[in-house]
Simulated scan of single mutants.
Amino acid sequence: MLSRKEHLAAFNRLLDIMDELREKCPWDKKQTLESLRHLTIEETYELGDAILDNDLVEVKKELGDLLLHIVFYAKIGSETNAFDIADVANSISDKLIHRHPHIYGDVEVKDEEEVKQNWEKLKLKEGKTSVLEGVPKSLPALVKASRIQEKVAGVGFDWEEPHQVFDKVKEEIFELEAEIEKGNTENIESEFGDVLFSLINYARFIKVNPENALEKTNKKFINRFQFLEKAAKKEGKALSDMTLAEMDVYWEKSKIYFK
């Protein structure tokens, strides 16, 4: 492993390169906080993919891309004296010290749940009027639901036992079925949302990350379906000309390889 001195030298090298690119590269000179935003979101998703694939080489590369974006934002901020990379680092350091009184103060905690609860209480003391203020509006709905539930649980608004949450899931499914029978489209959508919300909540109780779980299922389905396509092609068949029963034969075979 490299020493702390070598770590700092590597970071300093990146800062020097960023300074030079901002001064000399036509593309880098043109960028703004707004123009980089969608690229940062894309890089974050690419990092997420690499993590789910357990591709550590790609994780390293994607972390580098994100680090570049952080340095880039800080460089742009420094040009108007709004903030620089030192302000960014000191800001998060100050926050971590303040939000961890069980490490840097005299507060005692039993477990990670108490750490989360203290974190949310401290945020309210810092001036936030709602524990939900920290949930970004632009988060994908599934991730947002998960964060909302974590936030309110942090201040004690939560179920006591997993079976209670699962009972709620079943209750919401029953209500969805009732609205489907009535044929009320607006109510069906509302109840379907309630089912998803309750399932995401249950995932938290059984220690499952719903976003990761769904994405792994997405990947599994893609792999199985592409296996089906390739197998059919080898047989000289087109999926559009096959019956569902014929396709199911290949689908069952795909489960051997992609579980």
Score class of each variant (00 low, 15 high):
1 M>A: 11
4 R>S: 06
11 F>A: 06
14 L>A: 14
16 D>K: 13
17 I>C: 07
28 D>N: 13
40 T>A: 03
42 E>F: 05
44 T>M: 10
45 Y>F: 12
47 L>R: 07
49 D>K: 15
50 A>R: 09
51 I>H: 07
51 I>Y: 10
53 D>E: 15
64 G>L: 13
68 L>S: 14
72 F>S: 14
84 D>V: 00
86 A>C: 01
88 V>E: 00
94 D>C: 00
95 K>G: 00
101 P>H: 04
103 I>K: 06
108 E>L: 11
110 K>Q: 12
115 V>P: 02
116 K>M: 08
116 K>T: 04
119 W>R: 09
123 K>V: 01
126 E>A: 10
127 G>R: 01
127 G>A: 02
135 V>C: 03
140 P>A: 05
141 A>Q: 12
142 L>E: 08
143 V>E: 10
146 S>H: 12
152 V>K: 10
154 G>V: 04
162 P>A: 13
162 P>L: 08
162 P>I: 09
163 H>T: 09
166 F>E: 14
166 F>Q: 14
171 E>H: 13
179 E>K: 12
184 N>W: 03
187 N>L: 15
188 I>W: 11
190 S>G: 05
193 G>T: 03
194 D>A: 10
198 S>Q: 10
198 S>V: 14
201 N>I: 01
203 A>I: 05
204 R>A: 13
204 R>W: 03
209 N>I: 09
216 K>I: 03
218 N>D: 09
220 K>N: 05
221 F>Q: 07
224 R>E: 05
224 R>W: 04
229 E>M: 10
231 A>M: 05
234 K>M: 01
237 K>P: 03
238 A>T: 12
239 L>R: 10
242 M>W: 07
252 E>L: 10
257 Y>C: 01
